[in-house]
């Protein structure tokens, strides 16, 4: 019998989402009609977005801090360095300072930070809140207005906050929304449906099915993300959006940050932890990665690009 490559036919496909418009160079996510490149060339390489914060982030691990020490006071400079020196495709500006228990910055101040970053770089932005369910929707609304027509990704809409407000801000000011569920496909489906009821389409939504870090439940993420991508290709229209990974969760793992002689230097352990976490998610179908360490970003991009060649 002859050898023939095992190629599948897929009834469904992943929607393509454009991030960046107006004064931004656009980046495209998703668009796959197949699982692997030997079945069909993959349309878009994976994208890495570099984490930047609106405050000098006291908790950042040392291997990251040392690269950004000089720019941490100004999110614009920080973003510029990520793009210029480390080749970020995109930048995520986390508005951590708006957290009521952090600095309680006002939505107006958040909008000013967004303007600073928009001025500094011409890559598309992800705009993240502080994680406070009361405040995030109003912060994201103000940020969305400040970045009108630039097609940022608003992070995030989830079941614990006023996702309608976030969706409306995206529709009104031409942005996309990150739809975040916690390792739960049914929750993801429901949330996506709700968001589409608010006027967003498949091309305006990116999903974050949650990245549990290497050693901290990565197997749960592997299963959920694999099943989500397979569902998309099988034709489930509620799950056909590209996926995002909060790869920086890797830095929460002890093995990444804890000083321990027997484990060798954190300088190397940390970046590998982030690479392996991101890479594993990439192999399950994730399209965009939120990351922190320059070396991890470089390695992930290099590998990612070969998968679309």
């Amino acid at each position: 019998e002859e050898f023939s490559p095992p190629i599948h036919e897929y009834p469904g496909s992943v929607a393509e989402v454009q991030l960046g418009a107006g004064s931004r160079k656009p980046v495209f996510l998703g668009g796959q009609n197949a699982l692997y490149r030997f079945e069909e060339p993959q349309p878009n390489p994976p994208v890495v977005t570099f984490d930047v914060f609106d405050i000098p982030m006291p908790g950042l691990p040392k291997p990251i801090r040392e690269h950004f020490e000089d720019v941490m006071e100004h999110p614009g400079d920080w973003a510029k360095k990520a793009v210029k020196d480390f080749g970020a495709n995109m930048v995520t500006i986390h508005l951590i300072g708006t957290g009521p228990k952090v600095m309680d910055k006002t939505p107006q101040q958040a909008a000013a930070d967004i303007e600073e970053v928009l001025q500094a770089v011409d890559v598309p932005l992800v705009i993240g809140g502080s994680g406070d369910p009361q405040k995030d929707p109003i912060v994201l609304e103000a940020a969305a207005a400040a970045a009108e027509d630039e097609r940022c990704l608003l992070a995030s809409a989830n079941m614990d906050l006023d996702y309608k407000k976030v969706a409306k801000a995206a529709v009104d000011y031409n942005h996309a929304v990150l739809s975040w569920a916690i390792t739960d496909i049914n929750m993801q489906k429901t949330l996506n449906k709700y968001l589409m009821k608010e006027g967003l389409t498949q091309n305006d939504i990116v999903m974050d099915p949650t990245t549990c870090a290497l050693g901290y439940g990565i197997e749960f993420s592997i299963d959920v993300i694999t099943r989500t991508r397979l569902a998309a290709l099988k034709g489930d229209t509620d799950l056909q959006m590209p996926m995002s990974s909060g790869t920086t969760n890797a830095w929460g793992s002890r093995e990444a940050w804890m000083k321990k002689e027997e484990w060798g230097p954190t300088e190397y352990r940390g970046p590998i932890w982030e690479i392996v976490t991101g890479l594993t998610m990439m192999l399950c179908g994730v399209d965009i990665f939120m990351m922190l360490h320059p070396q991890s970003v470089k390695m992930l991009r290099e590998i990612g690009e070969t998968f679309t060649k």
């Binding site: 592997i222 484990w263 060798g264």
Partner: peptide, 20 residues
């Protein structure tokens, strides 16, 4: 054979092979 190189690989193996 550096332990910092092997720890992530060993951990990934342990994770991927846990019985769901």
């Amino acid at each position: 054979t550096e332990i910092w190189e092997l720890i992530p690989v060993l951990t990934l193996r342990q994770s991927v092979y846990t019985d769901p």
